[in-house]
């Protein structure tokens, strides 16, 4: 993976400085990555559960409108 960088643009004098992330920033970045992955998995899990519920309700004979009324689209 490429080196993660921080670019600082000082708009008072229009100077641009590039540096690599320091240790603390890398830790934050990693934590955020983990959080993103967790959130995404939760999203996928919630979506799968919703789709399963919709399928089961449809199997019980509910129409699409009735299913939507219960669990949404």
């Amino acid at each position: 993976m490429e080196n993660l960088m921080v670019r600082i643009h000082n708009i008072e004098n229009d100077e641009i400085t590039d540096r690599e992330m320091n240790k603390k920033e890398l830790e934050e970045y990693t934590n955020n990555q983990n959080l993103l992955i967790t959130n995404k998995e939760k999203e996928k899990s919630a979506l799968a559960a919703k789709q399963s519920a919709q399928a089961k309700l449809a199997a019980l004979g509910l129409t699409e409108e009735e299913v939507a009324a219960i669990v949404g689209n």
């Binding site: 960088m5 643009h9 004098n13």
Partner: peptide, 19 residues
């Protein structure tokens, strides 16, 4: 318009010195 900054080459773009 105070500034125009390109989003390239870094994971974090910090815009400093805002009036």
């Amino acid at each position: 318009l105070l500034s125009t900054t390109n989003l390239t080459g870094a994971q974090t773009i910090s815009i400093t010195g805002i009036s």
